[in-house]
Design a protein around this nucleic acid. Structure first.
Length: 266
DNA sequence: ACATTGACCTGAGAGC
DNA sequence: TGCTCTCAGGTCAATG
């Protein structure tokens, strides 16, 4: 699902396909995906412009326009971008198409309609009003900042990792992987983690996210020793072959290895 | 102020 | 075959 590594891969995809081209027109197939803007307004604000560069914060992708605006994309659970020639076969669930003068288009595909396409003028304001925490991979998000974010939290660590107000970018799948690499049970309460546990959690977070981007966020290309390819019924721990267990944490299905991720007293 | 739960949304897959 | 049920999971509003 589009979490930080997936969105980073999308970002690089846009960088290598969609920058510096004149936008000819915009077609909106489903307006539900648009949040603060009508289809007509979106067209007006994009037509004749170009994409200069992109940036990412957590699971949000910002496409910087040449006039200072930002096309802001969130992919929900099933969203992805695709750049292709106008006469090629379209993806199944195109919601918004940005057509360039060169005969190609950038399509926003999203089966389940839970994502958003917005136009904004102030990136920092957007991050503040949406109460997004620091991006998990931001260089200045160091261990001290990480520790500070989790201070005073009472819930379960898996929920905290997935909370975008605390840290931006981690969702259900990668929170499982991070906890697995750190050897921490998903239901461990945040307050019961000591400094050494927090330290291994922090390093696991950075390592898992960076390594996953390198693997193109593709489960089949994940390094040996990753849990992600085993996140299903019948999966086994890559370290000890113990069958993985599935539990509900805050309404989400979490997978973990009951042998490698023992629950400490809390 | 914080944590948890249910609704939103669509299609795949299970079970009968 | 075809129907119904469950599940997937990011976010937000409602509730605890």
């Amino acid at each position: 699902m589009p979490e930080l590594p997936d969105v980073e891969v999308f970002k690089r995809y846009l960088d290598s396909t969609s920058l510096h081209q004149d936008i000819q027109k915009v077609e909106v197939e489903n307006t539900r995906i648009l949040k603060n803007i009508s289809a007509r307004q979106l067209q007006t604000r994009l037509k004749g412009r170009r994409f200069d560069r992109t940036s990412r914060h957590g699971k949000y992708l910002f496409v910087h326009l040449d006039d200072g605006q930002y096309l802001t994309l969130h992919f929900g659970m099933t969203g992805f971008p695709r750049y292709f020639k106008n006469d090629e076969k379209e993806p199944d669930h195109e919601r918004v198409k940005v057509k360039f003068k060169n005969g190609y288009q950038l399509a926003y595909d999203n089966q389940r309609l839970l994502g958003t396409v917005k136009m904004i003028r102030d990136r920092n304001r957007f991050i503040n009003t949406n109460r997004l925490g620091p991006d998990a991979l931001a260089p200045d998000f160091d261990f001290d900042a990480f520790q500070e974010c989790l201070e005073g939290r009472r819930g379960m660590i898996k929920s905290a990792l997935m909370n975008q107000e605390i840290i931006a970018g981690i969702g259900n799948v990668y929170s499982d992987e991070i906890l697995f690499q750190a050897g921490i049970h998903p239901k461990t309460s945040v307050g019961s983690l000591d400094t050494s546990a927090l330290l291994s959690l922090y390093h696991a977070m950075k390592h898992v996210l960076q390594r996953s981007i390198k693997a193109n966020a593709d489960p089949e290309k994940m390094p040996a020793g990753f849990l992600i390819p085993q996140r299903h019924k019948g999966g086994v721990c890559p370290n000890c072959d113990t069958p993985v267990e599935k539990i509900k944490v805050a309404g989400r299905s979490g997978y973990f290895c009951p042998a490698c991720q023992q629950r400490s007293e809390d």
